[in-house]
Amino acid sequence: MLAKCIHSGPGRVFVGIAGFLVIWEAIARFGLGTGTFFPRLDSLLPAFARLLHQPETWEGALLTMGRAIAGLAVAMLVTAFMAALATLWRPAYRSFEMLSDMAQTVPPAALVPLMIFAVGLGAPMFITIVAFASIWPLYAATATGLAATEPVQLLVSRALGMSRTEQILYVRAPAALPSIFTGLRVAAGFSLMATIAAEMLSGDRGLGAQLYDYAFSLNVPEMYSTLFIIGIAGASMNAAQQLLEKVLLDWHFGQMKSAEK
């Protein structure tokens, strides 16, 4: 239902932004009216525009999104390997189940100090932490998706003389794509969150570090503006993914529609 609301176009976005700004101004004026911690729009919007004109903001946004996407890419590679192994060999499926149950409880932020110590600041640290954070939802969705292929399709592929590897590539993987994309959506959210957390804790540039600096130097309008820029970065990652999903899963949505009729 929510997904349908998003798809219904730019009108919703305007409603959202307008509603948000009205509520914001109302709170700033009448609610938490101190004004310093909850700036009114007349000081917030100029700060936002100023940040958009600074090259540092764009560099930070590129860095943050680059780290998130690089970590996500590594997570996808590892997931592909793990899920293929899990589909070919049952004990692997069972043991990864346990590994993922345990690993999901590790807060990615808790790895930041360890990783800084092990590999130092820089891209490898971010990519490892982001990949670790986003791999588990992706793996869970991929493994269940691969396992849930329709038996008839598997029988047909066997009748056509496909090997098990071919079966994974040409039958199971396409059938699992909708499920994989669901996992990817969750994983993308996790990847941005892990990036921001790692940047805040390590102080190594990026939007997370900028947000932290603005907050602790009490540049309140800049802090909120950075927060919204992070939100925009997240939203554009979502949008890119929905676009990819639409291109790759056109056949699936077509099927859903004809099933509804």
């Binding site: 929510l2 509603g19 969150m193 921001i196 939100g231």
Partner: peptide
């Protein structure tokens, strides 16, 4: 729509606020 605007902001980023 407001929820959809706020949702992409990672919860950790709320900590400074």
């Amino acid at each position: 729509p407001i929820i959809e605007l706020l949702r992409p902001i990672p919860p950790v980023a709320i900590a400074p606020v």
